[in-house]
Nucleic acid binder design. Structure first.
Lengths: 156, 156
DNA sequence: TGCAAATGGTTTCATATGAAACTATAACGT
DNA sequence: ACGTTATAGTTTCATATGAAACCATTTGCA
């Protein structure tokens, strides 16, 4: 086996990024890994995507939202929400009615089947979150909470 | 304006996820926001994608890698790397030679033009990282470092 | 040797995604 | 009332993406 490759020494001219210590990169890897682990739990079993699951999660908490409100709460764009809803309605997991006073708006909610699925997936998702957080002690968890609050982008 | 919509009370049957307190979701939003902010700095100006930039960043630090090694270091899959390299080589930012003792392997590196671009983009990326970290105090930054180390997935 | 299995890398194909255009309805200003 | 502008949601189109098939070369081993 060849010797392990060494970093090029940072010369005067070049100052390469060290990705493994670069916050945006580390967050991206961590986030993708965690989300994918959870998604693996339900994607095959229920034939549902991450975006669709997020829509369902929001509707589980806030019944009767419009599509735009779902987009706001999930931080997804309206096209993605529109498509997710189309699939969810076809699959019978979400109900869609028209708003009484505004015929443009949808009034969305989980169906019986939607709730049934939600009630199976939500505990799995929570369990995965616990697995991740179990790597930290109580103090670290508290700091993480605090740090995320401070970094969290707020709407303009 | 209508009254702010209230969460459906968590009944005995249903225990909806609270996305705004759900770690995987929060990480995903945070990560996407930060990465996109940085990408906005260079995508238009240099006509380059996030994946391409990551490949360049790795080659800036480790000269002479093969495509597979780039894939490992960037945590991207080999198809993505192959495509990114194709564009980068065409654009004259990355050089590709064939390995002396293994004709399957590429030997990759930044060209002059690649280095020139790198030397403009890297400082911008670092500046953005500093902007994000400026929201935290020194103690919080230290904890974040530690927490990321512990959560960071290690190869199996 | 010589041949099966493994490896590096690219191409194909099917799906995901976002920006912009579009349709329908509602709100606003005169 | 009526035309303009804004909003909710969908469709279109062009691009991004990943899994699997693929090609070329190398490795392992009988």
């Amino acid at each position: 086996m060849p010797a392990k490759r060494q970093p090029v020494p940072a010369t005067a001219e070049h100052a390469p990024l060290q990705l493994e210590h670069f916050l945006p990169y580390r967050l991206s890897i961590l986030s993708n890994t965690i989300s994918q682990t959870i998604a693996d739990d339900y994607q095959r079993r229920y034939d549902i995507s991450v975006t669709e699951w997020r829509v369902m999660a929001v509707l589980a908490r806030f019944d009767g939202l419009s599509a735009r409100e779902v987009a706001e709460r999930t931080a997804m764009d309206k096209v993605a929400v529109s498509r997710a809803l189309a699939r969810l309605v076809t699959a019978g997991r979400v109900s869609r009615a028209i708003h009484d006073n505004d015929k443009r708006r949808s009034v969305l909610g989980l169906t019986e089947a939607g709730w049934a699925m939600h009630d199976e997936v939500a505990p799995m998702a929570r369990a995965r979150e616990r697995e991740v957080l179990a790597k930290l002690d109580a103090e670290e968890r508290a700091w993480l909470e605090r740090i995320l609050d401070k970094l969290q982008p707020t709407k303009p």
